[in-house]
Design a protein around this nucleic acid. Sequence first.
DNA 1: TGTTGACACGTCAGTTTCAACATGTCACTC
DNA 2: GAGTGACATGTTGAAACTGACGTGTCAACA
Lengths: 187, 187
Amino acid sequence: MSLRHALLGLLADQPASGYDLTRKFEVSLQKYAWHARHSQIYPELNRLAGEGLISVVEEGARGRRTYAITDAGRTELRDWLLAPAKEAVVRNETVLRMFFLSTLDNDEIRGLLREWIEEADRELARIGESLDRIEALRRERKGRWFGLFAAEYGKRSFQTQREWAEWALAQVDEAEAAAEAAKRETG
Amino acid sequence: MSLRHALLGLLADQPASGYDLTRKFEVSLQKYAWHARHSQIYPELNRLAGEGLISVVEEGARGRRTYAITDAGRTELRDWLLAPAKEAVVRNETVLRMFFLSTLDNDEIRGLLREWIEEADRELARIGESLDRIEALRRERKGRWFGLFAAEYGKRSFQTQREWAEWALAQVDEAEAAAEAAKRETG
DNA sequence: TGTTGACACGTCAGTTTCAACATGTCACTC
DNA sequence: GAGTGACATGTTGAAACTGACGTGTCAACA
């Protein structure tokens, strides 16, 4: 189960509440690493606290509970990072759709490819801002670079998505031109 | 639920049995698109058949049943490809580990990065073969390119993973050198 | 003839995940 | 003082998914 490790990982950077963690999922992990809803996060936090991997360090307004990772939690996180129990699970609906793209008509293919190019541009803009924030934090608190590796990976991934889509568009055009040429020859 | 669409997508290319589909998952979808076990695939095939989205076209030795996609199934697949019901779900344990990489020591980070480089090399070799097969098929049955888009995407993705890991290794070295220089200055 | 290993499909109990429902707080503004 | 929207945490029933177990077939080879 990776959800608990995602939570431990986020708490390894700094203490946070369930609400904070939900927002962190939404803005950073959700899109290219791990998807989870608050209805899954809150019970898991309770379990982690019960097992002593995290602990409540502050209680605030509106029932807010701030959790921090414990030493046991850090050990658990480290073990998982260095040697995950089994082969990595991958689920990516977009990639799945890319897989079956060729079952569509050329114009439909082009439509989807253009959507993916736009998505990549949006994400690249978002990640650019994120990288700026991390860079600022890095200057501020020397030597720290939490999130930098992932943000850079995200950036490169969406650049790849964009370039791939451009390549695919060219492939479709090329195939279509070849098909028309063949048609003219026989017709 | 994407599993059914993954199955419909595979059957859109050519008829196959549950066993065939399980193997296709293992060799192609599993690694970077969608993960599923045979214990999930067989019941889902029965449901799809019950709903008329696929049908049994052949019964062979050892209880083997070959399924083909129906027109209703093609419609369902097409609808999903063009407009998936909700935002794409992403789960990727490797990327999640990349996210928390910086909580480790420099040497541990280097170890993981090297593992990921090796993994990328292995996958690139595998995908290279795959692309050769697809290319051969394409020459044979003109105009068909099922799987080509995805294989190319996979190739580019693992190239990205490799390049990112090399970049990250350089970052670690750089940070370490800077830290040591600072230490010499104060010490 | 026995054994091995790939082929082929299935079930099931337990866990994870999702969407929807539910409840209340606090700050701000009209 | 009423309304709004962000804050904050929960529960629950259904669906999806996993890992392990179970059953039998068939080809090849010793």
